[in-house]
């Protein structure tokens, strides 16, 4: 598929158009600081923050801590997703399993997962395990719920057709059920991704010695607010990119889906 140059420049123009309110915002920020409207104690100028960011990036400070945070989020997300998909699938296939498991799942739904961070700190100390455990539990629920919904809404005629074409009961989940559930599973994945960041950062702020969350917290304590703002901007950018990448992956893998075309038009939000 050739990419037409007009399409590229049109796309770039659209992107710049969409981003201009941000530029406006930064301009306002700068104006508010330099005009003395806002005490620079509480709001460093954009230039100072940018300088701090450059320093952090070049010094490797950001990279190191970011890696730790992302590692914890990714491992928790991966484990939580795999277990969540399995549990959701089992719940959809077996009424007995569902009946036994539902109250436990329902209970964790109402529990704010970050409340477990002190408990995990008690059990596992102040290292990676606590963070990963918290992320794992947080990611579990959306994956269970979405997988369950996706599998349960698989049209009967698809299952029957597959069976008439020689699909064994063992092959049914991988060949039909999980594939039919893919759109729902991906929706759950996007939610879980958001949770993984929140829980990783929360854990780091509460009970950790490393990671971006800890870094932000430390800068705040030390009073080096330009570095604090820079670190926050960093994690916001990374979370945004991660979400967009997932969305892109989702659209590629769900090309076959009815609404795939419609979704692609609504790229925003």
């Amino acid at each position: 598929m050739l990419i037409r140059p007009e399409a590229v420049s049109a796309g770039a123009a659209r992107l710049i158009g969409r981003m201009s309110p941000l530029v406006l915002f930064i301009a306002l920020w700068y104006g508010a600081c330099s005009s003395g409207l806002v005490n620079s104690e509480f709001l460093p100028t954009p230039t100072k923050v940018a300088a701090a960011l450059a320093d952090l990036v070049s010094g490797g400070e950001i990279a190191r801590n970011l890696f730790v945070t992302l590692f914890r989020a990714a491992v928790g997300l991966a484990l939580g997703s795999i277990c969540g998909i399995w549990i959701g699938l089992m719940m959809a296939r077996s009424e007995r399993f569902k009946a036994y498991v539902t109250p436990i799942v329902g209970g964790t739904y109402s529990l704010p997962k970050s409340a477990l961070i002190p408990l995990f700190a008690l059990w596992f100390g102040i290292g990676n395990v606590t963070a990963i455990a918290a992320v794992f539990l947080a990611c579990l629920l959306p994956m269970i719920v979405n997988t369950y919904h996706g599998v349960v809404t698989t049209p009967k005629v698809l299952v029957w057709s597959a069976q008439a074409l020689g699909t064994t009961d063992r092959e049914l989940p991988s060949q039909v059920l999980l594939r039919s559930a893919m759109p729902d599973i991906f929706t759950g994945l996007r939610i879980a991704l958001g949770f993984s960041f929140v829980l990783a950062i929360s854990t780091e702020m509460i009970a950790s010695t490393s990671g971006i969350g800890k870094l932000i917290f430390l800068y705040g304590e030390n009073g080096t607010y330009d570095y604090m703002f820079a670190a926050i901007a960093c994690i916001v950018a990374v979370a945004f990119v991660a979400d967009r990448v997932t969305l892109l992956g989702m659209h590629r893998l769900l090309r076959w889906h009815e609404s795939a075309a419609a979704d692609y038009e609504r790229r925003r939000l």
Partner: peptide, 26 residues
């Protein structure tokens, strides 16, 4: 819509708890 959209798009996936130190500062 044009004005608010980029902030929502950036803010939605971001872990809001990371902003706590800013709120504490202010």
């Amino acid at each position: 819509e044009w004005l608010i959209d980029p902030f929502v798009a950036l803010g939605f996936p971001a872990p809001k708890i990371a902003f706590l130190p800013i709120f504490i500062l202010w």
